[in-house]
């Protein structure tokens, strides 16, 4: 059996995430990318509010914890002090697409040389499964118990499409982590997003379609299928901007 290689940028510890949740995979992929780019010494991450609020305990590099939605503003401060560093935010959908819409839009508009990893699982995981700005139409949550009704609760936000309209955002891609093939392509996108930042080109973001088996009330296996059958239908995977960039 091949030896399981542990990324240097990831602590060898137990994470608190639920079985079948995408956070653990996303953490590992980010850590692998940082290792491969050899930037462990100059990466600074910004943790946000949500299930990943304390991921500075899991990553093995400098991090700063931010208030709900404010990670892009905090990252802006960190990056402007040390422009040579590589700075990223790790944000969920409530954080980025509800309370933090102003911060993400304007970090992108400034062309802030940071990278955002946007975990979109269509629900508020940490607070017990409330409706998120990205909750799908008809999706049942603890605050849309009859399913999201567009006449009452409006429409899910397509953040990659929105952000790709902003000139300062130079690399925008939506990926998924529900199977190995997609995880590998997600890793390529995350690596490119960091490289875009390192080349000083502007703001980069990777939206990651993710699972939340606990709050979706599904098994891990069914959750992966739910991403494919439902989320990928509304949130089309692919590059929205910057595919042509050679970095």
């Amino acid at each position: 059996m091949p030896k399981r290689l542990h990324p240097k940028s990831l602590e060898n510890t137990i994470m608190h995430y639920c079985p079948g949740c995408s956070h653990g995979i996303a953490h590992r992929v980010i850590a692998e990318v940082i290792d491969e780019l050899g930037i462990e010494g100059k990466i600074v991450g910004i943790a946000s509010v949500g299930c990943s609020y304390n991921n500075y305990l899991y990553f093995k590099f400098d991090m700063q914890q931010a208030a709900h939605g404010r990670a892009p503003a905090v990252a802006t401060g960190v990056k402007r002090v040390h422009p040579e560093n590589v700075v990223f935010t790790y944000q969920g959908d409530g954080d980025l697409a509800a309370i933090g819409t102003a911060e993400i839009i304007h970090a992108a508009a400034r062309g802030e040389k940071i990278t955002t990893i946007f975990i979109n699982n269509a629900i508020y995981g940490m607070t017990s499964g409330q409706m998120a700005p990205t909750t799908l139409i008809g999706q049942v949550t603890t605050t849309s118990p009859l399913g999201r009704d567009t006449s009452l609760q409006g429409f899910p936000l397509k953040m990659s499409e929105i952000l790709s309209q902003i000139d300062g955002a130079v690399f925008v891609e939506r990926v998924s982590m529900h199977d190995v093939k997609h995880i590998l392509s997600a890793k390529r996108a995350i690596k490119k997003a960091f490289k875009v930042q390192m080349a000083g080109l502007g703001f980069s973001i990777v939206e990651v379609l993710s699972t939340c088996p606990t709050n979706w009330r599904l098994s891990p296996v069914d959750s992966a299928k739910w991403v494919e059958d439902n989320m990928m239908e509304y949130y089309k995977l692919g590059n929205y901007k910057g595919a042509e960039l050679e970095v």
Partner: peptide, 26 residues
């Protein structure tokens, strides 16, 4: 130095938190 006109007072204080956290006077 760095001057940023932020998108809000909320963003501005969080930029201070980031910059000061990164070791600068902010």
């Amino acid at each position: 130095g760095v001057f940023i006109q932020a998108e809000s007072e909320i963003a501005a204080i969080n930029m201070v938190y980031g910059a000061a956290g990164a070791g600068a006077r902010a």
